[in-house]
Design a protein around this nucleic acid. Structure first.
Length: 123
DNA sequence: ACGTTGACTCCTA
DNA sequence: CTAGGAGCCAACG
């Protein structure tokens, strides 16, 4: 089927779903905490996503550096073992930043409208 | 079982 | 555009 298999059996764990969604973020793209929460089936639990990332940092090999604030800001300095570590990783993937260290979200946010393809054929 | 906590987000100044 | 404060929600003690 297509890509709307989210609404079923999300009853695994919140963290598992979050990790699964984070793993889907392609290189050179980023997703916000809120978007991940939404995709994981828990819209509104964006703060938990942040916690899930901090937990994952020490146990799961996920591209959690691709999860950023909705406004394009990066995670706090005390994470990633250094203030510029995350930025460096993203730069190497081709992510472009604006003047104040904010990611150009219009360009790199994921998923994008074209990623979804609409399957709303009510005609 | 209730209160605290936190890699968030939104709204207002 | 930056800064501060309230609101949110699941995990933990």
């Amino acid at each position: 089927m297509n890509k709307q298999s989210d609404l079923m059996e999300i009853d695994e764990n919140f963290y598992q779903n979050v990790y699964a969604e984070v793993a889907k973020i392609p290189p050179g793209k980023v997703a916000s905490y809120g978007k991940i929460a939404e995709l994981a089936g828990y819209p509104g639990a964006y703060r938990e996503v942040g916690i899930a990332m901090s937990q994952a940092a020490s146990k799961e090999p996920l591209p959690y550096h691709r999860v950023v604030y909705k406004n394009g800001a990066l995670a706090p300095d005390y994470s990633f073992g250094g203030p510029d570590r995350q930025k460096q990783l993203l730069l190497e993937e081709g992510i472009t930043f604006r003047s104040n260290d904010l990611i150009n979200m219009e360009k790199h946010s994921w998923p994008n409208d074209s990623d979804y393809e609409q399957l709303t054929l009510f005609d």
